[in-house]
Structure formats: structure tokens, C-alpha cells
Amino acid sequence: MSPGAPLAAGAAGPMTPEPLRVRSLRRETADTWTVSLDVSRRPGGFPFQPGQFNMLYVFGVGEVAISISGDPGRPAELLHTVRTVGAATHALRGIGRGGTLGVRGPYGRPWPMEEARGQDVVVVAGGLGLAPLRPAILHLLRHRAEYGRVSVLVGARTPEDLPFRRELARWQEDSRLRVLVTVDKASPGWTEHVGVVPALLSDVEVDPARTVALMCGPEVMMRFTVRELERRGVPDARIHLSLERNMKCAVGFCGHCQLVPYFVCKDGPVFPYEKLRPFINLREV
């Protein structure tokens, strides 16, 4: 599957961002925002594939790799969901409506939506890991008849830390999806699950012969979930993980995001577990 044509591949060079205006900002959680960028001046909008990311540039501050969290079927809208954790993401949050961000992308290997066609799909999201999976879920809903059972398992620290909460509630009402939500720490009144994401798997019917798992979240959470899926007999070629590493250039030049043989930016960020198995449990790779 070839990624969408990068927007800055011309004479300007792959490291040059394109300025785009912030159309709106929506608060997801105390520290997480969804930023909508105006792509109305670009012919065809901003096409991308589920699981791809962009490099977002804040004037004079720096650049950060952020997953595209919008609907791949609606390229006229470009969404990123950003958690304010460092200098660039704080500055990004400070831009505000009407401000301008630099964008280059889309980059990276997407979720295997083609390969998953005709299969049951188990989507496993931890925390903001839901952001790169949201385009996959929207794709599945748009092409619902082409897939088997679709389960979405979502974990977060607390109920207040769940991104896309209203949409999650809508999905829970949607008979085309089975959506289970769990938190590590519940507040009083919480009536969904309390506990870790892998525990939700026991509530999902998994037919190992026809299940594809798409997973994004903290690496430890993913390792535990992979183990649970393996117990259920899902082959590791069909368990797909989206990894996070230090991505500076996103085009395979800078060397920062290496994971032994891979450049996470261009060989990933989505990998089948069979490719990660030899390395993922090692320290400091």
C-alpha cells in the first residue's frame, strides 16, 4: 500500500512545511485538543490513509509528529488530536483559532484496511492511541458491509482522560460496532469497566482464523494485549501495532526513530507484530 503523495516532495524539499490556518480547536480532555486545519485552498483537500501522521510546525518553536485523527473519507477536513506534553505541543495549543501551523505529510505506513477486508476487526486503543485509530474506525463504519464483526476496545487513565467521549458514546449506541471502554481509575458514578484493556478482550468473541487487530497505545499496554490475543490464537502477522519513537524528519533521513532494522517513520508507524517480535521486548532498542 503506498502512502499518499507527500505534499512537500517538490523543489521545496521534504523538510519544508506548508502553512495552514487553524479553523477550530475542540477540547477533548484537560490536556488534549483536536485541531482542525483549513485545507480549503488545497485542491482535493488533504487526502490521507488511516494511521498516517503529519509533522506539525509551530513558528519558531519546532515540529512534532502528530497522527491524523480525522475521517479519511472527508479529505476537506484535516484533524489532529494533540496532547500538550512538551514545548512544541504546548506552543501548538497556544496557536488558537485563526493562527497558522506548518504542516508536512502525510507520512508513514497506514493501517492495513485492505488486508482486513472481509475479516473481523478488533480495534484496541489506549489513551490518545485512539487518535490514529479514529480514522480506521470511521473507515470501517463507512465501508461497514465489507468487514465482519468490528469491536472497539478503549482504555484510559480516568473517565475524564477519554478523548472523543461524545463520539464514543454514539459508537456505543451504534449496532454496527461493539464498543467497550475501561479506565484504570474510576471516579464515583462511572458505570463502564474498571481495569486494563486486555481484560476487555474476554468480552469479545475472537475467531483467530478471521481476526485482524489494530492497536495503538502505550507500548506496555500493547505488549500485554498482544499476549492476550496470542492466548486467543490470533497469529502475530495479523496483530498490527502503531509505535511511537522520536521522529524528527519523518522521511528516513535523521535516524532518530530507529527500532533495530526499522525506521518507525517510514517502515511504520504501523507494524505487524511478527516484524516486531524479535525486538519489542528488548530494553533500549
Partner: peptide
């Protein structure tokens, strides 16, 4: 060895920003 990092800077008035690439090391 080809590792590099990117540094973003701006002038004191914040009107001009630059992006520099420089050699980095693992």
C-alpha cells in the same frame, strides 16, 4: 553515519524563524 537533528530558532522580535539541520549522534 547520517543522523541529524533539526533546530528551530526565531529572531528576538519573533518575525523570522529558521530551521537548521545539524549532525547528531546516536
Amino acid at each position: 553515519c547520517f543522523c541529524s537533528t533539526v533546530e528551530d530558532t526565531s529572531d528576538l522580535r519573533g518575525d523570522v524563524a529558521e530551521r537548521w539541520r545539524r549532525w547528531d549522534s546516536c
